[in-house]
């Protein structure tokens, strides 16, 4: 069985600087895999390579066994690569219902339909309601997104990605900036994400990583530094020195 997502010696250089240094990473089907590393380790660059925001200088990216290295952002998304953003990328003027509805109808291939009135397909409505409930957005579902509390915006960020029914979901620091009071809700929702979606979690927050992930990859200076189960990484001296140690200082 092929992996959900696999990179082979993936490489990205900016001028003389190597941001991603021959990283080979395998994301199994249904994985809860965390990618950690100190600031500047190249985590965001790696996500941008995976999603096609940046072109790679070398190596390969396989999505469910299919080579997508040369495909654009939009095509990869259509092939099942979903992502959330470290900084919210939402549609501020639209409501959560509209945003989710858009994602669902785009996935069903009805996005270019210019004659049907929005809100007249019961299968889409049903799925919107489903996602709204799952992501605890019921109360605010018809409010403009930019007026929502930050925690709810963060939930919508994930809901939008999941609405596209991705095979692989990249969560880029999903808990970043969420106030303590709204945190529990977010973590619970994360824990309840469907098991058939393979997830790569890019995170800084070690509590979240240990609670969520079953496998961890450590990135340092753009290169693969260590990989293993949660217990293995926690026990790894080198990781503690390089990463967990630096957490205290910075």
């Amino acid at each position: 069985m092929s992996a959900a997502l696999q990179t082979i010696a993936l490489e990205k250089r900016f001028g003389g600087l190597t941001a991603t240094d021959k990283v080979s990473l395998t994301l199994r089907h249904g994985a809860r895999h965390a990618l950690i590393g100190p600031n500047g380790a190249g985590k965001t660059t790696f996500v941008n390579l995976l999603t096609g925001v940046l072109p790679a200088n070398g190596g390969q990216i396989l999505l469910d066994g299919q080579d997508v290295t040369r495909k654009g952002q939009i095509q990869r998304a259509r092939l099942g690569m979903g992502r959330t953003f470290q900084i919210n990328q939402l549609f501020g003027a639209m409501t959560p219902v509209e945003s989710i509805g858009l994602a669902v109808s785009e996935r069903m291939g009805g996005g270019a339909d210019f004659w049907r009135r929005v809100g007249t397909r019961s299968d889409i409505l049903n799925e919107i309601a489903e996602l709204v409930e799952r992501f605890r957005l019921t109360e605010v579902m018809d409010h403009p997104t930019r007026l929502l509390p930050y925690g709810k915006q963060r939930l919508l960020e994930i809901a939008l990605a999941l609405a596209a029914n991705p095979r692989v979901l990249l969560l880029d620091e999903p808990a970043a900036g969420v106030p303590e009071a709204e945190r529990a809700e977010l973590l619970e929702t994360l824990a309840q994400l469907p098991r058939d979606v393979s997830i790569l979690l890019i995170e800084h927050d070690m509590d979240l990583v240990f609670a969520f992930a079953d496998r961890i990859t450590v990135l340092v200076n753009g290169g693969l530094f260590a990989e293993g189960s949660v217990a293995e990484i926690m026990a790894d001296r080198r990781v503690q020195d390089v990463y967990l140690g630096s957490e205290d200082h910075g």
Partner: peptide
């Protein structure tokens, strides 16, 4: 929830 979603989507048209 579904009805409310429908209302919100139909609001503009």
């Amino acid at each position: 929830t579904e009805r409310r979603a429908g209302r919100d989507l139909l609001r503009r048209s």
